[in-house]
Amino acid sequence: MSIVFIRAAILYAAVIAAVRLMGKRQIGELQPSELAITILISNIATLPVEDPSIPLITGLVPIFTLAALDVLVGFWSLHSWRVRRILCGKPVIVISGGVIDQKKLKELRYTIDDLMEAIRSYGIFDISEVQFAVVETTGALSVYEKTKFQAAEKGDVGANANPEDPPVIIVQDGILIPEALNRSAISEKRFAEILSNKHLKTTDIFLMSVKSDGTFKIVKKERQL
């Protein structure tokens, strides 16, 4: 069992090192340590399942070792900038002031196709519109457009820019959600009034959402044929 424990710890470090070595291109959305855990746990879990001669405990010990190590290392990296750098790396600026840093792209093994693909995912098709782009530690690209290409926002055109919460769904598939009703802009009494005015029961409603100004939208349930 102690062998399994040590092996799991060694594998954890080895997979993180391998993922860090592979670089950001391989990661996608997960942090290197998260990816290491995902790869290891998914493989380890299958071993005792596939081979009944392997005791279950040799599957459980490494899984819990890895999970616990991940939490502890995560906690450590929260408090240490150095550990965070070692485990996750650092974001790399690939476009600064509208100029592509080709050296950095090479270092990251990012081709121009990769860069363009990532930029297009932001709805930008012309690289000259990009002021600043960063390859994050997860491998994802963050893009900041040049000011003249940025879409005008409500504040820019002087329109009503008061902060507004999104609509709250208070009835879902004929079931009233009391917590949502409490959070919404209408009271229980008002809700009952709305229902009686519309000659509806809660069970007749498929969806009811309430905006922060008290306006609401009701989608009735379709009658079953």
Binding site: M1, F5, V61, F64, T65, V71
Partner: peptide, 22 residues
Amino acid sequence: KRIILCAGLLLCICISSFLALN
């Protein structure tokens, strides 16, 4: 709580490994 739980879990694994070996 999670940190304590994880540290406890690792400690339990170490202790049970030692006991099993013994």
